[in-house]
Each structure stands twice: as structure tokens, then as C-alpha cells.
């Protein structure tokens, strides 16, 4: 079976991504236009009149047909311009460029924490299924899935920031200016999101590891006299790594979504806060821009996960 080169795979994937980007941005645009509430009213100010609102619509091109407005936005995007906020006039690319690193740092910290805790938990649980270790892990994992991130976030702030004063309660710092400060600010939100991730990694890893460990070839390995740790590290984990990559890619997407709420709790000016502000004010260039950026991130993450899976498991047809 001839394998295609990674370059061609990536090229093919990017082509497939185009319709996804189009569809996602179009649907979000349509939703924003369908929901009542109109940025023209906001733009017209506190002392709005009907005629002034109509004037604003003309002035900002909001009276044009729906498809024309979407087309105009798309036209700019094709030229590499995400246009600007209707309200404040800030370039959407500038807003995203400033917000994205904040969100990325939280997700990265959350992912690292989730893996650092989730993987050992999954492994120890799978070694002796239904033992007390396994049951404890299951309980912690259930808690991790069940506890809402925003609640955990508020508890963390109350205890760790307000009472102990170890970490800042709100805000974000730029990573390029001071990495340590940036991480200190991102740590609590990262932990809040990581709880779910940890549970998910532990549960999935335990499940797939159990499946591998109960398979016939592992029995053969046991019969050959291989130690448990060698079986686990050389065969078991290599076999479940495909599942792990898939879990990670799903987790990253989920954590990105979770930042919408968590960023509000910690007042972090990230992508989540940006899209919320855009949606509330019906400032559609912002919403469109963030959706565009998120779709690209999700597609990229999925692509990397697929490539990694294919690298460790030759059976996976690209």
C-alpha cells in the first residue's frame, strides 16, 4: 500500500478546510443577523431616533442585502484583511493578535496539567482494574467531569488568590514581556479547565489500556516472561497512543470552548471574552474574525493529531 507524502496530506486537508471555514463563518453570520438586536441601535447611541438608526444603517452599509454583506466581509478576508470592529474601529486582526496568546497559554497549561495528572491516573487504574486505586481514580475522574469549570474557578480564586494570596485573581500578562508573570496569571484558569481534561484523559486511557492489556498478544508477552512495566511502557502505551492523540485533539477543542466562560471569571482578555463582547454588541466583524481563527486552530489541531496517529500506526490510511 503506497503511502502519500505528508506534504500532499496537508495540502489535501487544507483544501478540505476551505468549505468548513466558509460554512462556519456563513452560519455564524446568518445567526447573528437572524437574532433580533442590531448594532445600528448601539451605534446610534443613547439618544437614538428611528431616522438616526436608519441613517446609521446606510452609513455603515448595514442596509445592504445579507449576502452582499457576507460577500463584502469574505472579499476582505481573501485579501488578508479581517476588517475592523464596527463599534470601536480597532482592527480585528489586532484584537485577535492580542487576545490569542492569552487564550493559548491557558489552554497549553491546562493541557499539560491534564496530561501530567491524567496519564498516571489512567495507567495505575488500568494495572489493577477494580482495585481500590482504580476506584479512587474513577471517583476523582467522575468529580472532574461533574464539577463545572466556572465553579472550580471561583473556589480557586477565593482560596488561593484572596485567602492565601499566592496567585493573582484576575487579568493576564504578556508572555513576551514576562513569561513567569504570564504563567502566574494563567495558572488558576488553566487548573480550572484542566480538571475536566484530567478526568477525560484518565478515563479514556484506562479504558483503552484495559482493552490492550486483556488482548491475546499481551497474554503471550506475559507468557514470554516480560515484566509488567515493560509490557506497559513498550507495548501498552504505544498501542493506546493513537487514542491518546485523538483525546488530546478533542480536548484542545473543548478547552478552547471552555475559555469563553473561564476568561469571564478571571477577566482575561482572550479570544473567549472577545467573541462574547462581539456577540453581545452584534459587532459581527469581531465574531466572524474569532470564529475564523478558532476554525483554523481546530482544523490545525485535528490535522496534527491525524498525522501523529498515522506516524505511530501505519494501518491508518490517510
Amino acid at each position: 500500500m503506497a503511502r502519500r507524502s505528508p506534504a500532499r496530506v496537508i495540502g489535501g486537508r487544507l483544501l478540505q478546510a476551505l468549505p468548513v471555514i466558509l460554512l462556519a463563518t456563513f452560519m455564524v453570520f446568518a445567526l447573528l443577523k437572524l437574532v433580533p438586536g442590531d448594532i445600528a441601535v448601539t451605534l446610534a447611541g443613547d439618544n437614538a431616533t428611528d431616522s438616526r438608526i436608519a441613517e446609521i444603517r446606510t452609513l455603515y452599509g448595514l442596509d445592504r442585502p445579507f449576502l452582499v454583506q457576507y460577500g463584502a466581509w469574505l472579499g476582505h478576508v481573501v485579501q488578508g484583511d479581517l476588517s475592523q470592529s464596527l463599534l470601536t474601529g480597532e482592527k480585528v486582526a489586532t484584537s485577535i493578535g492580542r487576545a490569542f496568546p492569552n487564550t493559548l497559554l491557558i489552554v497549553a497549561i491546562a493541557l499539560v496539567l491534564a496530561l501530567l495528572t491524567g496519564i498516571p491516573m489512567g495507567v495505575v487504574a488500568a494495572i489493577k482494574p477494580n482495585g481500590w486505586v482504580d476506584k479512587t481514580v474513577s471517583m476523582i475522574a467522575s468529580l472532574g467531569v461533574a464539577i463545572p469549570g466556572f465553579w472550580l474557578a471561583m473556589i480557586l480564586v477565593a482560596e488561593i488568590s484572596l485567602k492565601l494570596n499566592w496567585l493573582p485573581a484576575t487579568g493576564a500578562k504578556s508572555f513576551s514581556v514576562s513569561p513567569i508573570d504570564a504563567i502566574r496569571h494563567a495558572l488558576l484558569p488553566g487548573i480550572a479547565i484542566a480538571a475536566y481534561g484530567m478526568a477525560e484523559v484518565a478515563r479514556q486511557l484506562r479504558g483503552s489500556l484495559l482493552e490492550v492489556l486483556s488482548s491475546q498478544y499481551v497474554r503471550t508477552l506475559h507468557a514470554k516472561g516480560l515484566s509488567m512495566s515493560r509490557i506497559l511502557w513498550q507495548h501498552g502505551l504505544k498501542n493506546v497512543s493513537v487514542n491518546l492523540f485523538t483525546i488530546i485533539s478533542l480536548l484542545v477543542n473543548r478547552m478552547l470552548a471552555a475559555t469563553v466562560v473561564i476568561e469571564a471569571v478571571f477577566a482575561i482578555p482572550g479570544l473567549g471574552s472577545l467573541i462574547v463582547r462581539g456577540a453581545i454588541q452584534r459587532d459581527f466583524p469581531i465574531v466572524q474574525g474569532v470564529v475564523f481563527a478558532m476554525v483554523i486552530v481546530v482544523i490545525t489541531v485535528n490535522l496534527i493529531a491525524d498525522l501523529l496517529c498515522a506516524a505511530v500506526d501505519p494501518r491508518i490510511e490517510q
Binding site: P168, A169, V265, A267
Partner: peptide, 18 residues
């Protein structure tokens, strides 16, 4: 001015001294 739309969070930023 730090812009913090979530008022509970904003209030915490004052109690925490930020």
C-alpha cells in the same frame, strides 16, 4: 482602566488589591 465586564470578577480584583 482594566475593562472587566463580569462585575463579580471586577469586585474581586479590588479585594485582591489588583
Amino acid at each position: 482602566f482594566s475593562i472587566i465586564p463580569e462585575l463579580t470578577t471586577g469586585a474581586r480584583s479590588v479585594t485582591a488589591g489588583q
